[in-house]
Design a protein around this nucleic acid. Structure first.
Length: 574
DNA sequence: GCCGTTTTCGGCCCGACTGTTTTCAGTCG
């Protein structure tokens, strides 16, 4: 069983216990355990295999959860989870996804009406069966019907870039309102999470009522979910939910910190404050005894009040950043300006849309020293992949182009590369003749995603063992919101990559961001280099590098951990 | 169920909004 599956089961146990009405603190332990496991950089399986003590010392995982983890690793299931599911139907967990329905109402609906699925809930609401239940009325019925429609319209989360464009739009709109002095995004957007459930925007304004009115009347708004003096929520036509908070200047830092989250980071921070005799809420930091306010206008003050330096938003996941901050050991995170070149770019020869000239001109505007041209190999027929003859011809063309660059006194150079498929049998899709002429061979999987864990891992490892690859492209194959990662043992892949000096790519396409944050951190811990590349198919994609850099920051990467922060000579020399 | 500068027992983050209520529970973030 993989970490994600174990995390999911703990989360389900928490939900089921909550519906049953279990001890709230025990519920919190399971929920917290689930979050902790999701954020682990090492697989529980490999920790367990290290020996009896391998699983000890994970914060939030005590004796009971540890025993259940071992049970799941050994037997592939959890008896406690199965028993809970015998008491309650599995479909009841889906009820919690309906906005406005929590564990108490789910329990009530099941107990009184036998409702055990979203479809049954919809039927009951439409049949006016709900308004007789205690705590539910006419309005609740309507809201539930609406919420179910919303749930179906947006199955899941929004990609970062979609939310980012909405955020930019709202920020510009709100800034124009008289009396508004500051507008900032918070939440998972500010933390550059790869996908998000909603958008949080904070403003400082003289007159909250004016701002709230304007907000709910924005042309993209479909429904106003709630509207108050300090907080309003709307649903956009695209289905994205946007929350707006209006604040005073003196509380802005505390609110920004609070609403940036993550929830886990904030809980840990508040816990720390409490131990120091302080209380943190969205209005500031207060002493427990006298209630005196000691911080709140800036985030720096809030962190300083609990003895910490400011922590970059991308790190705020309670994955060790508070402990690191305490010891003065926060990473010196990578910046976009550290990037010296792009190691994965396509031209018109395969499925890109620009020529070498156009790419060179665009890359020089970014201040890059180099770009690796990495068109597809022939296995990707749909992308017009290059066979040996075309590949050799392109290599000559790049040599000639570099000669011209040199003569005209330009420092910029192209690297001769290829995105070469790792075929199902682990062999590479270019001949040794082609591969030996390349500066930058980027291995990739583009087909056969449904292989077993063992087969896919073996396939990639065999590709790495050819010794011909420099970089492994989009290593897990995920497409956010579209396709799960294929099954692969990344621990084993990373170990092999390390052995052969292969860097792992962090693909900056906002739908990919592959490696993800957790694997980035793991790669760093193992001493691997990460290549942050755009996989550009057009010069417009080159700017996606910002997504890659921020994703890398979420993985704690520093300049030294990233291959393409090195200059041309050093990169070519590898 | 977890954890320890207060602790091996007794705590465990905190506030806004909604709907259904006559003072609050449930949900959400």
């Amino acid at each position: 069983m993989e970490n994600q599956e174990i995390a999911r089961i703990f989360s389900e146990i928490a939900d089921l216990l909550e519906i049953k009405g279990g001890d709230p603190f025990r519920i919190r332990s399971y929920r917290n355990g689930s979050v902790v496991i999701e954020g682990l950089t090492e697989s529980l399986k490999s920790l367990y295999e290290k020996g009896a003590k391998g699983l000890e010392g994970i914060p939030g995982i005590g004796l009971s959860l540890r025993e259940k983890i071992i049970e799941m690793l050994d037997a592939g299931k959890c008896k406690y989870h199965d028993e809970l599911l015998k008491e309650l139907p599995a479909g009841i967990l889906d009820l919690l996804k309906v906005s406005g329905v929590g564990p108490k109402k789910a329990a009530l609906l099941y107990k009184e009406l036998g409702v055990a699925s979203v479809n049954e809930l919809e039927k009951a609401a439409k049949g006016h069966k709900l308004h007789d239940l205690p705590g539910l009325g006419e309005k609740s019925e309507q809201n539930i019907i609406k919420a179910i429609a919303g749930l179906r319209a947006v199955s899941g989360r929004f990609n970062l870039h979609v939310a980012l464009s909405h955020a930019e739009d709202f920020k510009a709109y709100l800034k124009k309102i008289p009396g508004v002095s500051t507008v900032e995004s918070a939440g998972s957007l500010r933390r550059w999470k790869d996908s998000l459930g909603d958008l949080d925007i904070l403003v400082i304004a003289k007159d909250p009522v004016v701002v709230m009115d304007a907000f709910v009347n924005h042309p993209d708004v479909k429904d106003a979910i709630s509207k108050g003096e300090t907080k309003s929520s709307v649903t956009l036509k695209s289905g994205l939910q946007v929350d707006l908070r209006v604040l005073e200047k003196k509380t802005f830092g505390a609110a920004w910190q609070y609403f940036t989250g993550s929830k886990e980071h904030n809980i840990a921070l508040r816990d720390r404050a409490k131990r120091m005799g302080l209380k943190i809420n969205e209005y500031g930091v207060f002493t427990e005894k006298t209630g005196k306010r000691i911080a709140g206008e800036t985030e720096e003050d809030v962190y300083k009040s609990v003895g910490l330096p400011w922590i970059p938003p991308e790190l705020r996941e309670n994955r060790g950043e508070i402990e690191a901050a305490e010891k003065g050991g926060l990473p010196d995170l990578l910046e976009v300006s550290d990037i010296k070149g792009d190691l994965h770019v396509h031209t018109m020869e395969s499925d890109g849309s620009n020529t070498l000239e156009e790419i060179a001109a665009a890359a020089m505007k970014f201040g890059y020293q180099y770009v690796a041209i990495t068109d597809h190999s022939r296995a990707v027929g749909i992308a017009h992949g290059l066979d040996e003859a075309r590949a050799l011809k392109q290599i000559e063309a790049i040599d000639a182009f570099n000669e011209r660059l040199k003569k005209s006194g330009k420092k910029f150079r192209f690297l001769k590369g290829a995105e070469v498929d790792i075929r199902a049998d682990g062999t590479l899709d270019h001949s040794d003749r082609v591969l030996s002429k390349l500066d930058c061979a980027v291995g990739a999987i583009h087909s056969g995603f449904n292989m077993s864990l063992a087969d896919m891992t073996g396939r990639i490892i065999k590709g790495i063992q050819t010794g011909k690859l420099n970089i492994l492209a989009h290593p897990t194959g995920r497409l956010i919101g579209v396709r799960e990662a294929y099954q692969v043992d990344m621990e084993a892949v990373m170990d092999e990559a390390k052995k052969h000096g292969v860097a792992l790519e962090l693909n900056s396409y906002p739908e990919r961001l592959d490696l993800n944050d957790v694997y980035c951190k793991r790669a760093k811990e193992k001493g691997l280099l990460v290549a942050i590349s755009t996989d550009s198919h057009s010069i417009a994609h080159l700017s996606n590098i910002a997504y890659g850099v921020h994703a890398a920051r979420r993985g704690w990467l520093e300049k030294k951990d990233v291959l393409n922060t090195r200059g041309l000579k050093e990169v070519r020399g590898r």
